[in-house]
Design a binder for these strands. Structure first.
Lengths: 345, 345
DNA sequence: TTTCATAATACACACGATTGCATTAGTCGT
DNA sequence: ACGACTAATGCAATCGTGTGTATTATGAAA
C-alpha cells in the first residue's frame, strides 16, 4: 500500500507537508499543495484508517450485535441502523451472537478490542445478563402494550376463547404474553392451560394447531408470538380447510413484510422498528459525541401500533371493550464503550 | 483505556515484558509471567486491536458489501458468510450499498481505507462496473439453469401458456429469463409480449395479475422472478378467488423461508445460497492466506436445484419433456484487496 | 578470580498519520 | 544593512503493540 512517505519522496517534501496538503491546510503553499494533491490522486493514495484511528483514538465505527438474521425482524432493524449510522459517518461492525450467552460476550469483548466507538446490543433471550446493565442506555419496544392492544382488539370483536401459540424465548415474548393476559383479565376472561401452547418449529406449530382444533371447545382466535409463526398457523389451518377469518381469527406480532405476503393479510402490531432503530442510533451517537446532556442511563420505550388487516373477524357474538395500560419490560439494550472509560495516564 | 504501559508500570517492568508475558512467551520468568497475567486480568486489560493491526498490517476483517437487507435473500447469505468468517477468525464489516453505483464505490473505497484483508462484493444491478473486474474472483449462481429447470418443470406438467412477471433488475434476473425462454423455445413455445410483465411493487403485481387474468387466452402458469413476488401473486389470485394450483400454477425463485410460509407452499429453485456463501468465503480466505495455488482469477458457478411444492398442477392436458443445458452468467463478485497490492518501500 | 554461557529483562524501532514546535527563507521597514 | 515579522516547510513526538538486539545479572566451569 502506498503511504504518505511515498508521496513525499515523489514530491521531494516531507510527509508532514503531504499530510497537510491532503487536509487542504492553509499552511502549505498553494502550488505545492496542488502538485501534491495531483500526485496523490494519480498514485491512487488511500488514507490508512488504521493508523489514523490509532492517532485519533477513535474508529468512527459502531458495533452491532444481533442474535441472528434469519428471523426477518432483525434485517429490518439492521437496515435502519445501517442507514442512520452511515448518515452520521459511522461504519458498522456486524456480529451475530447466536443463541448462546457466551458467544454474545465474545462479540462484546471483540468489539471493545477493536475499539469501536460504541456498541449496539440487541438481546434475544430473556434474562441475558449484561455487565453493568444499570449503567447502559436501553431502548425497548413496549411489547406488553402490543400484546395488550391485540387482545383488546380481539375482545372488541367479541372473541372470548383465545389461544396463544409460540415460544416466548424473546424477553419481549413474555411481555407480549403479559400484556395479552392483562387485557383478558380486565375483560374477565381467563387463559386456561390448554390454550397456551409452546411451538417453535413448523412441525410443532402443526401439531399445536391440530391440538387446538381438536378441543371440545376450540378457540375462536389464535395469537402467535411472531408473524412468521402466524403465517405457519394460517398455512396449516388452510390445509385443514378452515376458512380464515370466518372460522378462525389469527394475529401475529411485528408487522414484517411477510404479513402482507400471506393470504389473508395478517393483523398484527408494528411500526415500532423504525423509531426503535432511530432512537437506538441517535442516542448512541449523542453519547459518543458527548452532546447528550443527561449523563444518567436512558430508558426509551417505543409503543407499537395495531395494524388491522384481513385475518380477523367477529365470532358471531357481541362484544365489550375494556381499556387500561400495562407496564413495560426491557428488550433492547445499548451500551457505549468509550464514554464510561477513563485513560489512566 | 488501559494499555500495556499501564500494566508495566504497576508490575515494575517494561512494556515489552508485559507484551511477551501476555503472549505466554518462554522468554519471561514464570513467576513474572504469572504476576503480570494476574495483574492484567484484574485490571481488565484488553488488547488494542487498532495498534496491533497497524503493527501486523492486517485487520483480520473482511468487508461485505450487499445492496440491501430488506429482501430476505440477502440476510440468508449474510448469515452464512458471517458464520463461516467467524469460524476462520475474521470479523465482518457490513456495508449496504443501496441501488446506487456511486454508493457502492464509496463502500469499496471505505473498506480499502479501513484496510480490510479482503472484500466480498455482492452486486445487484446488471452491468455494474467494477474496476479491474477481470482480475477478481467471481462466484455466481447459475440463474439461467434455474430458470431453465423451472420452465422445464412447467412444460413437463403440460403448461403451454406461461407468463413471466417481475423486474429483472438483478443481473441474475436476466439469466433466469434467458434460461426460461431457452426451455420454452426448445419445447417449440414462444413467449409473447403480453405474457411478459414488469412489476416491482405490490400495486404493480396486482395490476399485472388482473391484466393476465383478463386476457382472452390467459396463461395457465405464472413465473415470478423472486419468491416474494410469487407470494404477492398468490395473494392477489386468492383475493380474486382463483384456486391455486387448480386454476393457476405459480413458481418463484430462491427458495426463501417465506416459500413455506405461504399457502400453498411455493415451487421454486434453491439450495444455491449455502454453497454460494461457502465458496465465496473460502475462496477469499484462501486468497488472503495465499494458500490458493492458482493465481489466475477464479470463476465458480453454483447450480440451484428445483424444489417442487404445492403451487403447481397440470392444466388438464398431456405433457412432453425436453432437455438441454444453457450457459451461465455472472452474479456474484469477490475481490481481495491485499493480494494485488504491493508495498513500495 | 576470570571467562563464558545463558536466562531475563530493557531499549529502541517500526507500523502510518497528525500536529506542536523549530527552522529556514524571504520581505519589509527604518 | 540589520532586525523583525511572516510564510513555508521540516523535525520529532505521539498513539499502542510486537519483536530484534543490546544489556544486564547469575551461575557454572576452568
Amino acid at each position: 500500500m502506498i503511504t504518505l512517505e511515498d508521496i513525499a519522496r515523489q514530491a521531494g517534501v516531507s510527509h508532514s507537508t503531504v499530510s497537510r496538503a491532503l487536509a487542504d491546510s492553509p499552511l502549505v503553499h498553494p502550488d505545492t499543495k496542488k502538485r501534491i494533491q495531483d500526485l496523490a490522486r494519480e498514485a491512487g493514495y488511500q488514507v490508512n484508517q488504521v493508523a489514523r484511528n490509532l492517532r485519533f483514538q477513535s474508529t468512527r465505527t459502531i458495533g452491532l450485535v444481533v442474535p441472528e438474521v434469519s428471523n426477518p425482524y432483525y434485517p429490518k432493524l439492521i437496515q435502519q441502523v445501517a442507514d442512520l449510522a452511515r448518515e452520521s459517518g459511522y461504519s458498522l461492525q456486524l456480529h451475530l451472537s447466536g443463541a448462546d450467552q457466551a458467544a454474545e460476550n465474545t462479540c462484546l469483548a471483540s468489539l471493545r478490542e477493536q475499539r469501536v466507538d460504541g456498541i449496539l446490543l440487541v438481546t434475544a433471550e430473556r434474562g441475558r445478563w449484561v455487565e453493568d446493565a444499570e449503567h447502559i442506555d436501553m431502548v425497548m419496544g413496549d411489547d406488553a402494550k402490543g400484546g395488550y392492544a391485540l387482545a383488546q382488539h380481539l375482545i372488541g370483536l367479541g372473541h372470548r376463547s383465545i389461544a396463544i401459540l409460540g415460544k416466548p424465548s424473546h424477553r419481549g415474548g413474555y411481555d407480549r404474553l403479559f400484556g395479552f393476559k392483562t387485557a383478558l383479565e380486565e375483560a374477565g376472561l381467563v387463559l386456561s392451560e390448554e390454550m397456551q401452547l409452546v411451538a417453535n418449529s413448523d412441525a410443532e406449530v402443526k401439531s399445536g394447531v391440530i391440538q387446538l382444533i381438536g378441543l371440545t371447545a376450540p378457540p375462536t382466535a389464535i395469537f402467535a408470538y411472531q408473524d412468521s409463526l402466524a403465517a405457519l398457523v394460517i398455512g396449516h389451518l388452510a390445509d385443514m380447510c378452515i376458512p380464515i377469518p370466518q372460522a378462525m381469527t389469527v394475529v401475529g406480532f411485528d408487522n414484517l413484510d411477510l404479513a402482507t405476503y400471506i393470504c389473508p393479510h395478517l393483523t398484527t402490531v408494528g411500526g415500532h422498528i423504525e423509531p426503535l432503530a432511530a432512537q437506538f442510533v441517535n442516542l448512541l451517537i449523542a453519547r459518543i459525541r458527548k452532546t447528550h446532556p443527561n449523563t444518567s442511563p436512558q430508558r426509551v420505550v417505543i409503543t407499537p401500533q395495531l395494524v388491522v388487516r384481513g385475518s380477523c373477524a367477529p365470532p358471531r357474538r357481541e362484544s365489550s371493550i375494556t381499556k387500561k395500560t400495562s407496564s413495560p419490560e426491557g428488550y433492547y439494550q445499548q451500551l457505549p464503550t468509550r464514554n464510561t472509560q477513563e485513560t489512566s495516564r
